[in-house]
């Protein structure tokens, strides 16, 4: 396989890989590294790439597994420590302004979701996969995915309402 052909295959979904990695990992840099790693792995397996009937789902699964491994590994926990330092609730002016921004609140709520729900909500609400496609990536049956998705969405809604009503009720 030539480089150009390979690029044509991966170009449509490389952003999706990156966004999934970004949802699961802590920083942009980490997500970029993860994406690059996955693309390199795909490139090294380029001879077999035609054998996969759905390269995108395969790549998404690879990204998911890679990120979950990263999260489990010691490296990630170190990074997490750094990150939680950074997230320390020193209420600077900028932070307060940011907190007023409801969109960033949604982002924080999404961060609180367990990894599985994060993946599902990312695949469904951002990438707009249907349940069969999600099933291929997360290896769950569609009913379980539907339940998890509903739970995740309701959690976001409840937290959002909680934040909205904070200090009011």
């Amino acid at each position: 396989m030539k480089q150009a052909e390979f690029l044509n295959i991966i170009l449509p979904f490389k952003d999706k890989l990156y966004r999934l990695a970004k949802r699961l990992l802590v920083s942009n840099e980490e997500a970029e590294d993860a994406t690059q790693e996955v693309l390199l792995k795909l490139w090294s397996k380029k001879t077999k790439i035609e054998a996969y009937n759905n390269v995108e789902a395969f790549a998404m699964t690879m990204t998911k597994n890679y990120c979950l491994d990263k999260l489990k590994s010691k490296q990630a926990s170190n990074l997490k420590l750094v990150h939680s330092n950074y997230k320390d609730e020193h209420t600077s002016l900028q932070k307060e302004v940011e907190l007023k921004d409801s969109v960033s609140i949604v982002h924080q709520i999404l961060e609180q979701l367990p990894a599985q729900q994060k993946i599902i909500i990312q695949l469904r609400d951002v990438e707009q996969y249907d349940f069969e496609e999600i099933a291929k990536v997360v290896n769950m049956n569609p009913t379980a995915i539907r339940v998890a998705l509903s739970r995740a969405r309701k959690y976001v809604r409840e937290e959002l309402i909680k934040k909205h009503n904070y200090g009011v009720s």
Binding site: D15, V103, V106, H107, L110, V126
Partner: peptide, 14 residues
């Protein structure tokens, strides 16, 4: 904000 956020996330690129 929820839907807005999802829309924003769709714009992220590698």
């Amino acid at each position: 904000p929820m839907f807005q956020h999802f829309a924003n996330l769709q714009g992220e690129q590698y």
